[in-house]
Write a protein that binds this DNA or RNA. Structure first.
Lengths: 330, 330
DNA sequence: ATATCGAGCGCAAAGGTTTGCGGAAATGTT
DNA sequence: AACATTTCCGCAAACCTTTGCGCTCGATAT
């Protein structure tokens, strides 16, 4: 157990004061070039590394960002996290990852950990059940920027970064219409989420603006529910020729059913989804999707975080454009 | 910006000394029940939270674990991380996640971050190219336990937690034989990884112990390569009736090709994979797989970490059993 | 020779917490 | 009444770094 080098130890060995060592390592002009060199070399040799805790104790903030998501086992969050982690490292920050498990209580526990670790900033996608965001706003009182992403609260005065949900859903609807689909089934997720409502409203308004379109919308909370819905709606004969899936979860359930029913895509039925793109390319033909990239969102969120840290108190909601990726399923 | 409560402030308000406050909050018997109660209530009211940095500065270690993986966008790591994160929170630890991007240099950067943050312990799955693990062993000199998982170094004297790779590959091979497959194609990953070699050796030895089995093994570094291999080997007529996929990556490539070639599973060809189980259930029929659960591994790794922290210096390699999950693809 | 100045360095305090030791008052013992 | 023992609490140091201020010494200016 080799004891770590500290300023003190270096100072003792070199017979100079701690402050001189500290300044020398920071290339402070008060210290002679000779001394600076001597100290730098010795510190190098001793493998000196500043004690983060001492620094954080003084400055009362750390070089650590935290990120709270319902679950990291999710493509979207995964790529979001990946992006933020990359940027963090590039900027000398570390990243602390916490899962709320879609449980508001755990979410509060996590928030507590963030406070205890005096994180420099916080990225959070709230749970479906989170209604009270005061605890989050309190963080901002402590000068810890909070960037909400993906699942964001309705509350106005906070930093939000999200996919242009309405535009994305519209793109998908228009794509189905462009391919002359007349009988459209749209499956959405949990109706409690604002994200669901936005997508549903946008999708519906495009479809209902058309004449002679048979349209049905429904909700599934998980892949299995989506699968059952397809069996119910399309189990005896093809009553629909176009299916919209709001998320990866829904897509997997839908495709399971479609394959079980031996429907051929896109001959029998067209499928389009909102996704980050990983799952759609697993199928044959690949599924067309409107890209909702967690990665891009992560990059944007990070930029916003840096802006907040450098004093921009201007609260805003940032949208990341959605792009239609046409594959073979339409 | 509300200033945080500290022992000092509480002490001033209550007109007692800092040490008394500290002890009172720790239910130290030296402090009278009355004082303890008074302090506790006041601290509660002030929303006092101990300053982690001050504590870590004193004790020189934190309540933070770090985990370094090549990339978190990977089912296996994802579920591993998920498990470790859960346990960490339950035990009052936080988790810091770092990606090496399969780059040994970044890996060293990450390691540096771990040192700077004085993490309490480290979980790491090394990159393919990592040959020198001295930097990791140095962490142990600093009393920071290092648990290697999944991609572990060959070096003996370190803590390793991994799937029983040989047994798992054997299970898969036996399953194919049990289903009377006579012409077997096995696709493996990067040959540089010890994990690949183990699986390949085990699988091969089982198959080659049989008479009258046509057998071919090959390597693919990504899904696309796997896809091309299937096209090459099975593109003109079915030369194989059983395919083994060493990983999720390979499975997705293989299935893509199988679907493109319009082969019916398992009528035309059987497929079996090693996986944590998410991807296999997306297909129809679902793909049989030997479960290599990152989640289970995470739980085991965490237990081992706790053991190390409580003084068990006994170095060992722990195996997590593999289980055959038969689905419809055989 | 005295005053002025700058270069180079050290002192000390602050940030929050923990803990061994010692001290004062209260209680118990003979 | 004199002594011993508890009970309850405070002092001070330590963990490591940063930084404003001040000190000393030699050099330049007057």
């Amino acid at each position: 157990m080799k004891p770590k080098a500290t300023l003190k130890k270096i100072a003792e060995k070199l017979q100079i004061s701690i402050s001189t060592v500290s300044r020398a390592l920071k290339d402070h002009p008060d210290i002679s070039l000779e001394t600076r060199k001597k100290v730098r070399e010795f510190a190098e040799m001793m493998e000196y590394e500043p004690n983060t805790y001492a620094i954080s104790l003084r400055t009362n903030h750390s070089k650590v960002f935290a990120i709270i998501v319902p679950a990291i086992t999710n493509f979207f969050y995964q790529s979001f996290i990946s992006a933020v982690e990359e940027e963090s490292r590039l900027h000398g920050y570390s990243l602390m990852i916490l899962q709320s498990g879609d449980n508001p209580e755990t979410e509060l526990d996590n928030l507590k950990l963030c406070r205890q670790n005096r994180v420099a900033g916080l990225f959070v996608s709230i749970t479906i059940k989170t209604t009270d965001i005061r605890a989050f706003l309190k963080m901002e009182d402590l000068d810890v920027p909070v960037i909400f992403f993906d699942k964001v609260p309705d509350f106005e005065a906070c930093n939000k970064v999200c996919v242009a949900d309405r535009a994305a859903a519209e793109l998908a609807a228009e794509a189905l219409l462009r391919h002359k689909r007349k009988k459209i089934l749209a499956l959405f997720g949990n109706d409690q989420m604002s994200i669901t409502r936005k997508r549903k409203e946008a999708f519906t308004s495009i479809i209902e603006g058309q004449k002679k379109i048979k349209f049905k919308a429904d909700h599934a909370h998980n892949p299995e529910e989506a699968r059952r819905l397809i069996h119910r709606y399309c189990g005896n004969g093809l009553t629909y020729d176009g299916i919209f899936c709001m998320s990866d979860d829904i897509l997997t359930g839908v495709m399971k059913a479609v394959q079980e029913l031996k429907y051929v895509v896109p001959r029998d039925v067209s499928v389009i989804a909102m996704s980050d793109g990983f799952l759609p390319q697993l199928y044959e033909p690949e599924i067309s999707f409107v890209e909702t990239s967690g990665y891009k969102l992560g990059k944007v969120a990070f930029t916003r975080m840096l802006a907040c840290l450098s004093g921009s108190t201007f609260v805003q909601e940032i949208m990341v454009d959605a792009v239609l990726m046409e594959r073979g399923s339409l």
